[in-house]
Simulated scan of single mutants.
Amino acid sequence: MTTYAALLRGINVSGHKKVPMAELRALLTEIGHTDVRTHLQSGNAVFSTTSDDEEAIAAELEQAIEKRFGFPVPCLVRSGGYLAAVADACPFPAAELEGRQLHVTYYGQPVDAARFEGIDAAAHLPEEFRLGDRALYLYAPDGLGRSKLAEALARPSRTKGITATSRNWNTVVKLVEMTADAETGDHGARA
């Protein structure tokens, strides 16, 4: 069994694309996954399965969500090991920052620096970004909502053809913990 996190993009935002977490847990169980738990209302689920094909798991989940809820929801599925590696590779001093100041955007495929050409890094300081393994790290000291760099990074010309979803550092750390707990069977009282 491998433990994964499913990262759903764009659900439960301003009353749109409502996916209750209890229903998401039930759906994941119905399609054959075990040890299903969710975190927050923004589309984070942890589960175990015998499959080792992240893309196939994500495609199956996308189809099940569209069938159940009537709208498409892009999903990324990543192993607990991958999530831990991304957290460990953070190029910013995460322990010194507030969770709202640091974000990771997870991508459905590798991205290279060419996608982000034309961004004047100096013009956005003190905000900064760095690329990782199918991930982008964003340091936004005033938070994501006020970040001009986040706007520039998310322009359709830079994200075209790629599933991408962002999580703040608190959620990044929590998903690493939840997937590690699932691997060891230590679930505590979390739901």
Rank of each mutant, 00 (worst) to 15 (best):
P110I: 03
A84D: 07
G145Y: 06
S79E: 03
A45L: 03
N12P: 06
E66M: 06
R9V: 02
A45S: 07
P91T: 02
K18I: 15
P156N: 13
L175A: 06
P20V: 03
L131R: 06
H16N: 14
L28W: 00
E151I: 14
E66D: 12
K160N: 13
H39Y: 15
C75I: 08
L76M: 11
Y4A: 08
H187L: 14
P74H: 13
T38D: 05
P110D: 04
A5T: 15
L144C: 04
A87M: 07
G185H: 00
E127F: 02
L61H: 00
Y82K: 07
R78G: 00
G10T: 07
D112H: 13
G161N: 06
Q41R: 11
K160R: 15
L28C: 10
I119V: 10
A122K: 11
R167D: 11
I162L: 15
E60F: 02
D186S: 14
T163K: 12
D88L: 05
I57E: 06
S48C: 03
L102S: 02
R100G: 04
V36Q: 01
Q101D: 06
G188N: 10
H39E: 04
A45F: 04
I65R: 02
E183C: 03
T165G: 09
K148S: 13
E177L: 15
R190W: 10
E128L: 10
L136C: 10
A150F: 13
S147P: 11
G99R: 07
T184F: 04
D186F: 14
I11K: 10
V104H: 04
N12F: 06
T179K: 00
I31V: 14
R37C: 03
S166Y: 08
S79C: 02
A154K: 14
Y139T: 09
Y137P: 01
A45G: 08
I162K: 09
M21N: 03
P74G: 12
G185C: 08
H103V: 12
L175M: 15
Q63V: 10
L7K: 05
H16F: 12
L28T: 00
F116W: 09
E30V: 04
V36S: 09
A191P: 05
L97R: 10
G99F: 12
E98D: 13
A114C: 05
D52L: 00
E30N: 09
A5N: 10
Y139D: 07
I57C: 04
V176P: 07
I31H: 01
L125M: 13
V176G: 01
N170D: 11
A154C: 11
E62G: 03
S48Y: 01
H39R: 10
Q109K: 15
R37I: 05
S79D: 02
E23S: 02
A113V: 12
D186K: 15
R146F: 12
T184M: 09
S48I: 08
A123G: 08
S14L: 09
C90A: 05
G81I: 04
P20F: 08
V77M: 01
T163C: 14
Y139A: 03
V111F: 05
R155E: 13
V13E: 12
T171H: 05
R68I: 06
H33F: 11
A95M: 11
